[in-house]
Design a protein around this nucleic acid. Structure first.
Lengths: 328, 328
DNA sequence: TGATTATGCCAAACATTAAAGATGTCGCCG
DNA sequence: CGGCGACATCTTTAATGTTTGGCATAATCA
């Protein structure tokens, strides 16, 4: 692979001059400029970023830690985040932590060894103290990593209320909600507790089920729902993330239940799958675009030295009414 | 951030000795080993990979170019590929080319400047010659990038036949198939041409529609289907990728069509969405696990100097029968 | 003449590694 | 007991590709 010396040799100028051309620094004549550019083209020269990174002490690399990129929520976010970052000159290193703290630990070490400029973290298998003692600029995505690290998430209080409303208005009596196995510090937890208390306020029974550690795989959802509904045949309402909700819809329909007459279903997130069900799913939509914009914005500010620790809550969260809920 | 000098200073040995401890090279006394490790721990030292990369002339970085990571097919593949690579010590740089050749070009340049050890490419907006002249080890994922770059894909001839079978056996008369806007060199194209010729052999009309460049966004699928079906009300069969197929199912059900009695639907890929429809979708399943294993395997072999140019076709592709097709 | 423009050279810096060299210790043989 | 070699341990030095600052040297222009 050609290096700057080869370019200098071919164009008949010094290495310094080539560097000056590359970085548009100092005086360069039109003629030299052309000579150097021609040489670069002829050699198909690509400046060695590794060497530049070493000298400049920054890499423009960003670590993106998600539990599982094949989960549509993270895929949607990753897509937007990567594009926003690339357009600002940053490169994303993808890390699937798989809900394993060993893996998460290895990824964090790897990112630090590779001197990433920052990280976006959507997982939290490590101790909060592990994150807090890091000097690396971090933004937490829908997850709490301690007071010193800003969390960006949608307003889950509002989300929980929005999700509860159709059940209240539709006169549901026994609602099953399935929540992730995140610990209590996870913002997503909020929507579920708000949801539950909203229902209780209206004397609607809320049956809570928390997915176990080993139940995070999406292909298990259907079975889990089947068992739960068998245990609670009285269920006439269901609330969970979209990925779970679409499985629930399938199950209820297969059982001959009418939706929304017999069972109402509300999803959360607004991923593709929520938009292609029949009957169409009612769901609370997370502001993917806004979330990713704010996450990237905060991260870049932190990288540029701003000391940001406050959490940011995105307010624009909407309820999209489909045909899986009824209005009485 | 502490560097190897700080560790050396704190442990009272030379920089080289620390390096030897790190790389387990040469003779190190138990005592020195301990001193160095204690110092590393005390300083929370992380070896600088950038400097190592520069010296060793390899980065263990792999570029992953996909059109759009939020598309479930790529998300599923990316997930598996990233895990396999990380477990082999490689790091994945995520690139969403967005079907833009400018972006793709910029990504390729970026990857070369960052001296990635290899790349997995699932997009092809550039000229084949652009890829062929690169010295970078590349594996093409379900895409053709010229004779010198190995393509890994499932057997789409078999896939096309498997997809056609239920329509033939179910006595469909007018089948609409929607295919991606990939040019004719894309392996995925094969399944659609095989599908069409299989139908023709059995005197079934096959209406082909090719998505336009600007129609790659999944939220547009429903509208496209609506227009096509309005133009062809005789349609009693539908074949496409899962992401399109689930939209078709929604549309037909909303139109009051019975599935499979009035319209049969077959999907392709086997993503989550295909598994949560009601009635359950019949689909041809791509071997995600096997595909990703082979892609990573071939790439690592190429990185290690093997000259691999032959395409690899994965045979284990299956038809999963759901309730969206009928057996007459 | 003196400022401006253009270029070159050299050395240092970034953090690390590897080859070669220095130093010291130990055992063994004559 | 002196010398030699084998081995253990650590240091010195050069290298990886790039940028930058300081300094020197011209040529050009006003």
């Amino acid at each position: 692979m050609p290096n700057i010396k080869d370019v200098a040799a071919l164009s008949g100028v010094s290495v310094t001059t080539v560097s000056r051309v590359l970085n548009k620094r100092g005086y360069i004549s039109q003629e030299t400029y052309k000579k150097v550019y021609d040489a670069m083209k002829e050699l198909d020269y690509q400046p060695n970023q590794i060497a530049r990174n070493l000298y400049n002490q920054r890499t423009y690399f960003i670590g993106l830690l998600v539990p599982d990129i094949s989960h549509p929520f993270f895929a949607e976010m990753a897509h937007r985040i990567e594009i926003l970052l690339f357009d600002q000159g940053y490169k994303v290193i993808l890390c699937n932590t798989q809900k394993s703290n060993t893996r998460e630990h290895n990824y964090i070490d790897m990112l630090r060894q590779n001197k990433v400029d920052g990280a976006i973290v959507a997982t939290h298998m490590l101790e909060i103290s592990d994150y807090e003692k890091m000097t690396l600029p971090i933004v937490a995505m829908d997850v709490f990593l301690g007071d010193s690290i800003p969390t960006v998430c949608a307003n889950h209080i509002r989300g929980g209320k929005l999700a509860a409303k159709p059940f209240i208005e539709g006169n549901a009596r026994h609602v099953l909600q399935i929540k992730g196995n995140h610990d209590i510090k996870c913002p997503a937890w909020t929507r579920h507790s708000v949801f539950a208390s909203e229902l209780h306020e209206h004397n609607i029974q809320c049956i809570d089920y928390e997915l176990k550690d080993e139940e995070f795989n999406r292909c298990q959802y259907y079975e889990i729902i089947r068992k739960l509904v068998e245990q609670h045949p009285e269920i006439d309402g269901f609330f969970s993330t979209d990925t779970v909700a679409v499985n629930a819809m399938k199950y209820f329909l297969e059982q001959g239940k009418r939706i929304p007459e017999d069972v109402m279903i509300v999803g959360y997130d607004g991923i593709d799958a929520a938009k292609t069900t029949y009957p169409s799913l009612s769901y609370v939509e997370q502001p993917f675009d806004k979330l990713s914009e704010v996450i990237v914005d905060i991260l870049l500010k932190k990288i540029n030295g701003e000391n940001i620790t406050e959490n940011i809550t995105i307010e624009d969260i909407r309820y999209i009414e489909g045909k899986s809920t009824r209005n009485c």
